[in-house]
């Protein structure tokens, strides 16, 4: 077994390979890690590149692929790519779910029944509270999209990002859980996580600090290089953070994967100080 496969099997490196196909987004969320918005540099990964990395990931011992951004579904080729990725490894793709209407929703039809989950951000059961962070009209679009996806046999997870989950009003969280259940998403597919103090959240003084010691190592590939976490390739004031950069080399994948294992050194799995978010 290679050092990379061993590290994955032992839980020292996350079992999922993350990829950023793009950085641009149709929203401008107040806590966005990557300062994503319409008009920002797209920093694209081509679909062929993503497929090559996924094949390499499987060979190295990774057991899943994660797609994040930016809003990945702004890329017209994404549904086709997801179908191909799902033939290689199970896929989770993070989305704001505001684009799942008309031709974009129709393009998702072939994904039904494949090992693909779309993780959708929904921060509150109250439309105003949700939309304050994520933009006007977001709540209505999300609650409309989730049943449409489920109806097509596409797996849905709901991700709730809170300023401070520990002190959040439990009653409000209960209402949110009632909502996602009513939409067809079970508790096992609902994750609650803190705002990470990087990117736009750091500029706004929001969230919890998150560096190498707080984040679980998960290899993440972007147009700018390989990072130690999907929370790593953050952008602040237009500048890419490099504190979680592993290598600029992303191909072959064994190069950044091996470098991540070396960078972790003898660190044991499940560091106490970690935030435990994946």
């Amino acid at each position: 077994m290679s050092a990379v496969a061993e590290a994955i099997a032992e839980g020292r490196v996350g079992e999922r390979l993350w990829l950023y196909p793009n950085y641009h987004c149709n929203l401008r969320c107040t806590y966005c890690l990557t300062e994503s918005a319409p008009g920002v540099p797209r920093r694209l990964l081509e679909p062929e590149t993503i497929l090559e990395r996924a094949h390499e990931a499987r060979a190295l011992g990774f057991t899943g692929v994660g797609i994040t951004g930016g809003e990945p579904f702004l890329l017209d080729w994404l549904p086709e790519l997801l179908a191909e990725l799902a033939q290689i490894l199970p896929v989770i793709v993070l989305s704001n779910a505001t684009l799942f209407t008309g031709r974009r929703l129709a393009a998702l039809e072939p994904l039904g029944g494949l090992p693909i989950h779309i993780q959708i951000s929904l921060d509150s059961a109250e439309p105003d509270a949700n939309d304050e962070m994520r933009g006007s009209g977001n709540f209505a679009e999300v609650v409309a999209a989730i049943p449409e996806l489920l109806r097509r046999g596409i797996g849905v997870r709901v991700a709730t990002t809170l300023e401070d989950p520990a002190s959040h009003d439990p009653a409000e969280l209960d209402r949110l859980c009632e909502l996602h259940r009513s939409l067809g998403v079970g508790d096992e597919d609902h994750v609650v996580r803190p705002v990470i103090r990087r990117g736009r959240a750091a500029a706004g003084g929001m969230g919890v600090p998150a560096g190498a010691d707080e984040l679980d190592p998960e290899l993440t590939i972007t147009a700018d290089g390989a990072f130690a976490s999907p929370f790593g390739p953050t952008v602040r004031a237009g500048a890419l953070d490099t504190d979680l950069l592993v290598t600029r080399t992303t191909s072959p994948l064994a190069v950044p994967a091996g470098a991540l294992v070396r960078a972790l050194g003898g660190r044991a799995a499940g560091h106490d100080a970690r935030l435990g978010i994946r």
Partner: peptide
């Protein structure tokens, strides 16, 4: 120059 706070893991 890459400032200390932005130093990549291997650096």
């Amino acid at each position: 120059p890459v400032e200390p706070a932005q130093a990549p893991l291997l650096a």
